[in-house]
Design a protein around this nucleic acid. Structure first.
Ligand code: ZN
Ligand code: ZN
Ligand code: ZN
Ligand code: ZN
Lengths: 132, 132
DNA sequence: ATCAATTGCGTTATGCTATAACGTGTGCGA
DNA sequence: TCGCACACGTTATAGCATAACGCAATTGAT
């Protein structure tokens, strides 16, 4: 998918996420954008929906938060499954892709005749900096 | 971890999950247990916390629901990462374990000096029965 | 026996996450 | 000009999860 021009609200949300050093919840984004005129959660969620659709933002299901894609110039939808390592101390997220894991999972699903549509791979723990 | 005797509330919650054909949300469980005297969400969440700790129940982060472990006589904490395929039509969940995927992810994390603690692997899509 | 610590339980209140439903305005092609 | 698609704004509501309090039963040490 080629990313269309972002609307004003989409740009505001995307900029916040791009500058953030950790994933943000929708309500945190809302708070950060109150000065820019944001008033209601839907303004954030609607922008996020589009950004997710365009593949420039990822949703982290295990922490109900959102993060800008770490590979902005590739297409995260084309290089298969995306995995995240999330530090529970500092919040930092590492995003990575692995075709081996990808194929292995897909083969298993295929053997079960399961048609995969969306995937979530998230590992929580502690990053190098935060490990004592 | 060896599973201790379950308390009354834990048993009630576990039985509901064991008999369910699809994952249940905490509030759905609450509704199903009102006749048994359940009144508040905490009664469910507290039981779930223990069942998760014992490893006999899994939480599906992507759908805010809970499911009984499909491998009750193994120890899901010992055979590495657990993955789930969740059908978005009928709700059925397939639980599986794959050491290949496991090692591959763990190797990557190790190379990043990331200390993994909890993992979430969930694939949403459509099962064989529900595929047109 | 007594005390302290632990664990489970029940209740009320609250907070966080997400969507429904309605209406407005703008741009654009038929 | 009409109809449609889309972004937007607002209010209200639904759904998920925990804080904080107090009580009761159990256990284990003194
Ligand atoms: Zn990405
Ligand atoms: Zn860290
Ligand atoms: Zn299991
Ligand atoms: Zn199905």
């Amino acid at each position: 998918m080629t990313t269309p021009m972002l609307t004003k609200n989409q740009s505001l949300v995307f900029d916040i996420l791009t500058r953030a050093e950790a994933p943000l919840s929708a309500y945190t984004i809302l708070d950060k954008l109150r000065d820019q005129g944001f008033r209601a959660p839907l303004q954030v969620y609607r922008a996020l929906d589009k950004l997710l659709e365009y593949g420039v933002v990822h949703r982290l299901e295990s922490i109900n938060s959102f993060v800008a894609c770490a590979h902005p110039h590739e297409d995260c939808h084309s290089h298969g499954l995306v995995a995240f390592a999330i530090c529970e101390s500092c919040g930092q997220v590492m995003e990575f892709h692995d075709h081996e894991v990808d194929h292995r999972l897909m083969d298993w699903l295929k053997s079960q005749k399961f048609k995969a549509e969306k995937s979530t791979i998230e590992i929580r723990g502690h990053c190098a900096n935060c490990t004592a």
